[in-house]
Amino acid sequence: MSKNAILTGLVIFILAVLLPFWVNLGGTAAAPKPEISARAKAAGRCILDKYDMRADHMQLLGKWRNSVVRHSNRLYKTADGKVFTMSLSTGKNSCLGCHEGKEKFCDKCHNYANVAPYCWECHTTPKEINQ
């Protein structure tokens, strides 16, 4: 193989490896901030600590789903003794009841990190249907 052909291939490879750098030229690293609704602010604390909630909420919701669907147990007791209804989108005490607006809260981080959970295949907010 000629040296020029090899060099061309090598340059293409190096550019491909460096893709994340030149795609982000001039960009910033800022992560989005989900909007905390007035109600959530007033409550001051979610059902778990902030970092636990960030890391574990999907697993918690998975457990809730199994608990509600398979064992019809709808009550969740937090570490500090408060009781919540296990629900993503129904009622004032559900996740979306407090964190108003999926696109203002959930989607902010989900879109940033390319997370497309299938929660929304069943749970939809009425606003979304109207759109």
Binding site: N24, A29, A31, C109, V115
Partner: peptide, 10 residues
């Protein structure tokens, strides 16, 4: 915390 991880990588 995946958002923290992405902040670092970005």
């Amino acid at each position: 915390d995946i958002i923290g991880v992405k902040e670092l990588t970005m």
